[in-house]
Protein backbone atom coordinates (compact mmCIF):
# COMPACT_ATOMS: atom_id res chain seq x y z
CA UNK A 1 0.00 0.00 0.00
CA UNK A 2 1.51 3.35 -0.99
CA UNK A 3 1.06 6.69 0.77
CA UNK A 4 -1.83 7.88 -1.42
CA UNK A 5 -3.76 4.65 -0.96
CA UNK A 6 -3.12 4.86 2.75
CA UNK A 7 -4.34 8.45 2.93
CA UNK A 8 -7.53 7.30 1.20
CA UNK A 9 -7.97 4.45 3.70
CA UNK A 10 -7.47 6.81 6.65
CA UNK A 11 -9.99 9.27 5.24
CA UNK A 12 -12.48 6.48 4.73
CA UNK A 13 -12.18 5.11 8.26
CA UNK A 14 -11.87 8.38 10.21
CA UNK A 15 -15.16 9.82 11.50
CA UNK A 16 -16.28 13.08 9.92
CA UNK A 17 -16.32 16.29 11.90
CA UNK A 18 -19.84 17.65 12.42
CA UNK A 19 -18.85 20.91 10.70
CA UNK A 20 -22.33 22.31 10.08
CA UNK A 21 -23.43 21.59 13.65
CA UNK A 22 -20.24 23.19 14.99
CA UNK A 23 -20.66 26.21 12.74
CA UNK A 24 -24.26 26.79 13.79
CA UNK A 25 -23.33 26.40 17.45
CA UNK A 26 -20.36 28.79 17.11
CA UNK A 27 -22.57 31.27 15.21
CA UNK A 28 -25.18 31.24 17.97
CA UNK A 29 -22.67 31.54 20.83
CA UNK A 30 -20.69 34.26 19.05
CA UNK A 31 -23.92 36.10 18.29
CA UNK A 32 -25.01 35.76 21.91
CA UNK A 33 -21.75 37.39 23.05
CA UNK A 34 -22.32 40.21 20.53
CA UNK A 35 -25.86 40.61 21.86
CA UNK A 36 -24.66 40.75 25.48
CA UNK A 37 -22.03 43.29 24.41
CA UNK A 38 -24.67 45.48 22.80
CA UNK A 39 -26.82 45.29 25.94
CA UNK A 40 -23.82 46.34 28.08
CA UNK A 41 -23.06 49.24 25.70
CA UNK A 42 -26.64 50.47 25.92
CA UNK A 43 -26.66 50.20 29.72
CA UNK A 44 -23.40 52.21 29.82
CA UNK A 45 -24.88 54.90 27.56
CA UNK A 46 -28.27 55.07 29.26
CA UNK A 47 -27.33 54.64 32.92
CA UNK A 48 -23.80 56.04 33.11
CA UNK A 49 -24.12 58.76 30.51
CA UNK A 50 -21.04 57.66 28.53
CA UNK A 51 -20.51 58.57 24.90
CA UNK A 52 -20.94 55.63 22.47
CA UNK A 53 -17.18 55.59 21.64
CA UNK A 54 -16.19 55.49 25.31
CA UNK A 55 -18.73 52.81 26.15
CA UNK A 56 -17.22 50.49 23.50
CA UNK A 57 -13.83 50.85 25.19
CA UNK A 58 -15.42 50.02 28.54
CA UNK A 59 -17.21 47.06 26.98
CA UNK A 60 -13.88 45.61 25.75
CA UNK A 61 -12.45 45.98 29.25
CA UNK A 62 -15.46 44.31 30.85
CA UNK A 63 -15.53 41.37 28.44
CA UNK A 64 -11.76 40.82 28.67
CA UNK A 65 -11.94 41.06 32.48
CA UNK A 66 -14.75 38.51 32.71
CA UNK A 67 -13.07 36.02 30.33
CA UNK A 68 -9.71 36.35 32.13
CA UNK A 69 -11.41 35.74 35.46
CA UNK A 70 -13.19 32.66 34.10
CA UNK A 71 -9.93 31.35 32.61
CA UNK A 72 -8.15 31.78 35.94
CA UNK A 73 -10.98 29.97 37.70
CA UNK A 74 -10.56 27.10 35.24
CA UNK A 75 -14.03 27.41 33.70
CA UNK A 76 -13.39 29.02 30.35
CA UNK A 77 -11.64 26.03 28.74
CA UNK A 78 -14.75 23.93 29.32
CA UNK A 79 -16.86 26.56 27.55
CA UNK A 80 -14.38 26.76 24.64
CA UNK A 81 -14.40 22.98 24.22
CA UNK A 82 -18.17 23.13 23.79
CA UNK A 83 -18.70 26.45 22.00
CA UNK A 84 -15.53 26.16 19.85
CA UNK A 85 -14.92 29.21 17.63
CA UNK A 86 -17.95 31.00 19.04
CA UNK A 87 -15.75 31.92 21.99
CA UNK A 88 -12.31 31.92 20.34
CA UNK A 89 -12.97 34.45 17.59
CA UNK A 90 -14.36 37.35 19.73
CA UNK A 91 -12.11 39.38 22.07
CA UNK A 92 -12.90 36.77 24.73
CA UNK A 93 -10.71 34.28 22.86
CA UNK A 94 -7.79 36.67 22.56
CA UNK A 95 -7.76 37.46 26.28
CA UNK A 96 -8.21 33.78 27.06
CA UNK A 97 -5.26 32.72 24.87
CA UNK A 98 -2.89 35.18 26.60
CA UNK A 99 -4.20 34.28 30.04
CA UNK A 100 -4.02 30.50 29.55
CA UNK A 101 -0.46 30.64 28.18
CA UNK A 102 0.61 32.83 31.12
CA UNK A 103 -0.94 30.41 33.61
CA UNK A 104 0.98 27.52 32.01
CA UNK A 105 4.33 29.22 32.49
CA UNK A 106 3.80 31.11 35.75
CA UNK A 107 6.11 28.74 37.65
CA UNK A 108 8.95 29.36 35.21
CA UNK A 109 9.52 32.95 36.26
CA UNK A 110 8.28 36.39 35.19
CA UNK A 111 10.80 36.88 32.38
CA UNK A 112 11.60 33.40 31.11
CA UNK A 113 8.11 32.08 31.85
CA UNK A 114 5.22 34.52 31.59
CA UNK A 115 7.11 37.20 29.65
CA UNK A 116 8.43 34.84 27.03
CA UNK A 117 5.30 32.74 26.61
CA UNK A 118 2.24 34.94 27.26
CA UNK A 119 1.84 35.72 23.55
CA UNK A 120 2.62 32.20 22.38
CA UNK A 121 -0.76 31.90 20.70
CA UNK A 122 -1.82 35.54 20.48
CA UNK A 123 1.54 36.81 19.18
CA UNK A 124 0.74 36.02 15.54
CA UNK A 125 -2.50 38.05 15.82
CA UNK A 126 -0.57 41.05 17.11
CA UNK A 127 2.11 40.74 14.43
CA UNK A 128 -0.57 40.50 11.74
CA UNK A 129 -2.29 43.58 13.23
CA UNK A 130 0.90 45.67 13.26
CA UNK A 131 1.89 44.70 9.72
CA UNK A 132 -1.55 45.33 8.26
CA UNK A 133 -1.79 48.67 10.11
CA UNK A 134 1.59 49.68 8.65
CA UNK A 135 0.53 48.98 5.06
CA UNK A 136 -2.91 50.46 5.48
CA UNK A 137 -1.53 53.72 6.82
CA UNK A 138 0.83 53.96 3.80
CA UNK A 139 -2.17 53.33 1.54
CA UNK A 140 -4.16 56.00 3.36
CA UNK A 141 -1.34 58.59 3.06
CA UNK A 142 -0.93 57.79 -0.64
CA UNK A 143 -4.63 58.11 -1.41
CA UNK A 144 -5.75 60.92 0.85
CA UNK A 145 -2.48 62.69 1.73
Amino acid sequence: MNKDEYAKLVKELSPKEPRIKNAIYAFLVGGLIGFIGEVIVNILIESFGLARVDSYAWLALIIIGISCLLTALGKFDNFVTKAKCGLIVPTTGFAHSVQSASLDYKREGFVTGIGANAFKLAGSVIVAGIISAFFLIILKVMCYG
Binding site: N22, H96, Q99, L121
Partner: peptide, 16 residues
Amino acid sequence: KQFRYPIEYGSPRTQT
Protein backbone atom coordinates in the same frame (compact mmCIF):
# COMPACT_ATOMS: atom_id res chain seq x y z
CA LYS B 1 1.50 21.74 27.53
CA GLN B 2 4.48 20.34 25.65
CA PHE B 3 2.87 19.01 22.51
CA ARG B 4 -0.30 21.04 22.05
CA TYR B 5 -1.93 24.17 23.41
CA PRO B 6 -1.79 25.74 26.88
CA ILE B 7 -3.72 23.66 29.38
CA GLU B 8 -6.42 26.21 30.23
CA TYR B 9 -6.94 27.07 26.56
CA GLY B 10 -9.25 24.09 26.10
CA SER B 11 -8.65 23.94 22.37
CA PRO B 12 -11.45 22.11 20.53
CA ARG B 13 -10.62 18.47 19.77
CA THR B 14 -11.42 16.44 16.69
CA GLN B 15 -13.27 13.14 16.49
CA THR B 16 -9.99 11.31 15.82
